[in-house]
Computed example of a mutant assay.
Amino acid sequence: MSAQVIEGRMTAAAEDGVVVFLIGMRINKFRSPRDWWPVMRAMPRMLKELTEDPAGGLIGARFLVGGARLAYLVQYWESREKLLAYAAAPDRGHRPAWAAFNRRARAGGAGVGFWHETYLVPAGSYETVYVNMPEFGLGAATGVIPVGRRGDRAADRLAVKKSPAA
């Protein structure tokens, strides 16, 4: 992702549906790093694995911090099927990390909380605008185009439907 500001009003170049996956952790007990440190270390390894495999379905991710205790990722995926395939693949990083987390949680490791939310967003059901910003969010995942190509108002951009194949 480039930090170069793109002047003007832009919108994400995405045309198809997208899966938005939010995943994060909350440090409940700072003095229990044995609970939260493995969780903190697992995500960068999985992101590296996913970014090295473009066919895997992850099209973009952004790490965010919410105060001193909360860290999370906003991820954009090509499809629900690719997200679920990654989560279930026995030869990928997610399964062993999830199994280890569950073992620690069952053993009383409440020093860390974990959460995720998944949203399936069909084409035509999302709208974006970025004004004098570097590529960000869905625009960083799919590239950006001038707003005028999709309509100057949010209502116009939400009304745009993917054109049928010729």
Results as ranks from 00 to 15, higher is better:
Q75P: 03
G139M: 03
L158Q: 12
L64F: 11
P134A: 10
D35V: 03
P38K: 06
S32K: 15
G151R: 07
R104S: 12
K82S: 01
Y86Q: 01
G108H: 05
A166E: 07
P122G: 01
V74R: 11
V129N: 04
I6L: 13
G148W: 13
G24F: 02
A166L: 12
D156Q: 02
P33W: 05
L84K: 15
K162P: 10
M25V: 01
L47C: 11
A105I: 11
F114I: 09
M133A: 15
A42Q: 12
G66H: 04
L58E: 06
A165Q: 12
A85L: 00
R106D: 08
V112M: 10
Y130F: 11
A140K: 14
Y119C: 06
M25Y: 08
H94N: 14
G124K: 05
V19D: 01
W37Q: 15
A14V: 04
A13R: 05
V112I: 14
A110K: 15
P96K: 01
N28G: 08
D35G: 00
E49G: 04
R26C: 09
R150Q: 10
G124S: 07
L70R: 15
R157V: 01
V112W: 11
R95E: 12
L158I: 08
P122D: 06
R104M: 13
R149E: 11
A165T: 12
L50H: 01
G111M: 01
V18W: 06
L50R: 02
V144H: 01
R104K: 15
T128M: 08
R150E: 01
A107Q: 09
V131S: 00
M40H: 15
W98M: 15
P54E: 05
H116D: 08
E135M: 11
H116W: 07
V65A: 09
M25E: 08
T11W: 07
E15I: 07
